[in-house]
Every structure is written in structure tokens, then in C-alpha cells.
Nucleic acid binder design. Sequence first.
DNA 1: AGAATCGCTCAAAGCGCTTTGGATAACTCA
DNA 2: TGAGTTATCCAAAGCGCTTTGAGCGATTCT
Lengths: 342, 342
Amino acid sequence: MNLKELSKQLNLSQTTVSRALNGYPEVNEATRKRVTEAARKYRYRPNVRARTLATGKSMSIGHIIPMSKQNELVNMVFSDFIAGAGLVYADHGYNMTLTIVKDDDELEAYRGFAERGAVDGVIVQAPTREDRRISFLADLDIPFVVHGRASQIRAPYGWLDVNNKRAIQTATKHLLSLGHHRIAMLNGLETLDFAVRRRDGYLAALREANIPPDDSLMRSNDMSEPNGYEAAMELLALKAPPTAFVASSMILALGVKRAIEENNLEMGKDVSVICFDDDISYLPNAGDTPLFTALRSSVRAAGARCASLLIERINKPDAPLPNELWEAELVHGASTGPGPNA
Amino acid sequence: MNLKELSKQLNLSQTTVSRALNGYPEVNEATRKRVTEAARKYRYRPNVRARTLATGKSMSIGHIIPMSKQNELVNMVFSDFIAGAGLVYADHGYNMTLTIVKDDDELEAYRGFAERGAVDGVIVQAPTREDRRISFLADLDIPFVVHGRASQIRAPYGWLDVNNKRAIQTATKHLLSLGHHRIAMLNGLETLDFAVRRRDGYLAALREANIPPDDSLMRSNDMSEPNGYEAAMELLALKAPPTAFVASSMILALGVKRAIEENNLEMGKDVSVICFDDDISYLPNAGDTPLFTALRSSVRAAGARCASLLIERINKPDAPLPNELWEAELVHGASTGPGPNA
DNA sequence: AGAATCGCTCAAAGCGCTTTGGATAACTCA
DNA sequence: TGAGTTATCCAAAGCGCTTTGAGCGATTCT
């Protein structure tokens, strides 16, 4: 059943039926009732393709999630982010159009979205320091919101970020205050902006404590359990192994934990671990005493908020660009204890 | 730049330009070349909304991922499944339309997709035993493929499933052959079809070994690390605790591992653990000796295959319904060892 | 009473593409 | 040479909706 047929059934014009259904005021309440009832009766649903063509809005938000070619790793943080965003979209009548691309094709994918009018806006995730996507999207003149920031880019754009530097600085200071002075840092790939900020936080804390940074204690790689494990195994095998680890994600920290145990050491006693916790739903760091001491910030909440900000941007393109910086919360868990200096 | 403008630039009709770009044979190769060059020059991209309206195909596949209301848990297996499917879609020019809904709205979401013509086909994930979605979608007459099966449903439908029963039966037999006879089973929610099949596999193995099942050793819950931990803590506190665990997912097994360690026991020595491993990319159970002995089947490969099957179904609606049963592979890891009967 | 306003409805014009059903010129074959 | 192909191209008709611009009684205002 389409609009034409329905309006014929009702002896009304398509105009009136359309208006009645879409809540326009210039239609008599009595006829509106007739229309809505007939629509229900005949199970009429406006064809979404025709509607989007007519309105020029696709009522859909684009997410592009890149997959690194080497390891075929999907950043698991994406799924929680998307869950948060998806619910907000649904509430506002938007769909989410998701494209998975190999790294190289990413820019093209965004252009495709924009130029072909497939989506009304896009979310940019995991920006690098001078992320090309940002100016690219600005040129394409499509609304977007960045989850994170690109510190090398001066031109304004909408973003929502966690205060990564302060979070990791706090984490490192916490270890220092516990008496650790040989502290390793397992970071994500430092092409990514957030990783650089976290590194800065780590270095800033060491500097405050007058501890010269030791390159051999700093690692940077994809954030996966095996990478955390391998890095920790290497570090624990040093002549002067670290007594504490700062891990850029909980999944890395799980790898560190495994390495600690395999060395017959005890986490929280022999070796301390603190990590950034995105509060992933299926890997919660919760309970009375959470497994890890961590700096927590919900990536799902961030997804939801980014979605809201983007929808606002779509509706009010001239409103000022949103910029939000969230603080992470320190959670005390079982993975930290006094260091050798305590 | 739209088709009208482009064709004006070229002094050609929209028809010819459209045909040239879409590779139809009835256009001179010379003019085709002119057209493609002009298209590149002016950065012409056919508007996807207009195209889908004209063709009647949306070139998009729907995925609906439900979020259980109580725990707000996003099944983490989805992200790998989607990664696998997404790449196949991209290869075939399809998009993925993802909707996240609270449990109750799920059926309505499928109807919305179908009746409004938003997608050309849908994937059904995590079916229950008599999943309502299947007959619902069949009635709506929209192509779909189920990842998993609904054992109570007799009418044919397209599916791809892992042989869950045999996998867990093999797992349990493996523990039995190692000399364990008190074997716990930590399952997923048994409203889900796969969980029931796994339970059947566990029971079948016990039956073969003439071991009466003990309800107190069987648990069923959402598959998360904390749930695995809590169940294992309870079970290990029994007067007669199990000497081995079968876990329905690796994430549960990680919880079991934590509980074992917290009881100052050693996994693979004092207590054995075997699990089902979906081969998630960021939680790999790999290496020379993987952490867990497991029955492995890649959920990402399943996603890719489901996507292919669905696209075939869309293109050839009258072809026979695909039914594929995959066998899981036994992987020997460090989590199992001889039992008390050995 | 005539003009102006209001409330409701409609015909028709898009939205930007694909596709049908010719048209035209060139080319083939007997 | 004239009918029948073939190779190219085009005008126009959708696809199913929204939205513009009018129309037309009925009501209100001056």
C-alpha cells in the first residue's frame, strides 16, 4: 500500500493524506483521524527511499570503522561506542549506516557518504594528530562530530574528548605516590592523538617527580591482550624491571596481568598495574574491589553524547561548534600496592 | 553536480550518461570515455537516494542488534560478526544499516525495515528456540539469513550455524578422557538456541560416560567475565567442587580463571577449563600453547559467510535455501590437565 | 455589502535517478 | 537497391514521497 492507493481509498489527495500523517496543522482533525485509521488498517508505511529523496534528508548517520590491514583488528571500543550512539539515533528517528573499510579506503568512504548523500552526518572516531578526515569533511560541508581531537589541527570543529593527558598523569602520579619509581608505559599506537596525549600525561607526571623518562620502559602498539602480554614479558625480563605499569587500556592490562602471573609474581603486590578503563559492558572492571585500579570514562556514554551533539548540529548548522572535555574518574582496585620506595 | 547538469555539460541525454556510467553496452566506447572523464572531472556521484528510489533496491542490509534491558550488555560477539559481514558488503556495493533496539522493540524494528523498504535483506542473530522473527520475516517476504538455528521451527529458512552440540560434546568428552568426572557447565542464557544445543552436548557426553548430570554443577546466564567469575566462585566453594569447567564462551572462561586463581589453585593443574572460542580478534586464544583448551570457530568468518549467503539470496530469490553447519575445531591449550581419575 | 481572512483541500511540480520505447543514421545482405 | 540489422542516442515516463501555490467556500471585518 502506497500513498497514492491510500489517498484513493480515502477520496483525498496525496497532499492531504501526507499532511495528515505528518502532523501538519492545516488539516481538519476529523479527516486526520480518518486518515490515521485507514493508514493503520491498511498497514501503510511511507516508503523510506521516496521520502528521503523528496526531503533531501537521509535520516541516517554514517559511521566508518577502519580495520587495520595487518592484524585485522577491530577496535573493540567501537562496539560500545556504537551501542551508546545507536540508542540515541533510534530515539530521534535516525538510522546508523556502518561501513567497515580497510585503512586505506577510509577517506574515500567518507567522501562516498557525503557526495552521494547517503547520510546526513558522520562521526569520526580515533583521530590521528593531524587527521586528514577533519578538513576533508569540512570541505565536503557535511555535519560531523569527532570523538577525540586532532591536536595539530587549528581550524575549529566539533569534538568530544576525554582528558587523556590528565587521566594518565593522575594514574602515573598515583603510582608514584605509592612509592613506585620504575614505571612502564604500555600505550596504544602513537599515531593516534589520544595515545600521544596519554604519553604526555605519563611524561608530565615523571617530570614533576624529577624522574627522567626511560625509553626502554615505554611501548606503543595496537591495544590487544597479546600485545600487552608480550610487552610486559619483555619488560619483566629486564635487568631492572619496572615495578609498575600504566596501560592505555584494560585489554592491555589483562595481558600484563597474564605476564605477571606467568612470572610467578602477584599483581597488586609485587607489581602494580593501573589502566585506562573505557567501561566496556562485557569486560566490566567493577565489584566492591575492581580487578584494576583505573581511570574510567564510559565510551558508551561518549557515544551517546556524540550522537546527540551530531543531531543538534544537523538541525542547527549555525550553532556554535560543540567542544566537550570529559574528566576520567580514578577507581581504586586490587591491582596496585606500595612500591619499593614506600 | 547531478546527472542533469552533467549531461548538459556533455551535450548528451541523461539516459546516455547514466548508461555510460553504469556500463551498459549500447553506448559508444568513445562517448563512454568522454562521459567517465567528465564525471571524474566534475566529481559527479550519483545520488544514492534517487538511485535507490528508481531501482527499488536500497543496496543496504539490515542488522538489528538487541540490547537486553536489565544489563545493557552488548554481545561482544556481534562486533566481530559485523566486521566479517561488513567487508563482504563493501565488496558487493552494499551498506550495512544497523539499528540498536531495546529487546521489546525488536520485531517492530524488523517490520520497519521491511515495510518501509529501508533494506534489501536482513541478518538474524542469536535466535531463540522458537524465534518469532523467523516466521515474521518470512511473512514480510524479505530475504534473510539466520546466524544459528531455531530448533522448534519446522518451516525451512536459510541458516548458517556451528555444530554447537557436537562441539561441547567433544569438549566434555575431552575432559572425561582426561579423568575428570565432576565437570561443571557454565552456559549462556538457555533461551537462546545455541545454549540449549551446547547443554545437550554436555549432557550427551555425560550420558555416554554413565555419569548422572548434577544440576548444581550447571549454570546459565549472560556470558560476561563477572558472571563466569561468580559462578565459578560458588562452584569451587561446594563441598564437592568440580575439577573441571566447560564454559560456553572465552569471556566466561576468563572469569573462571580469575576465580580459580583467587582460590589459590592453578588452572590446567588443579582445575581444568575448556571453552568455546569464537576467535574474537582482540581476545585471541593463540600462541604456541594457547591459554585455553577450546573448541574454536571463527565468528568473523561466519559473518562473512552469512553476508555472502544473504546477497546470493537477494539476487536469486528462488534458489534453494542455504543451510550450512560448521564444525568447531579442538585447540589444545594450557587450561586442561589430568583429572583425579587419571 | 464588499473586502479581507481563515480553514481546509487539491493539482501539480519537483527530488535525481533508471528504464522503456522509440528514433535516426549507418551498415549489412541478397 | 531496398529491406532488414545494428549501433547510438534520446525524450519521457516513472519510482513514491513532500511541498508549493492555488482554489474555494465560510467566516470575519470595515
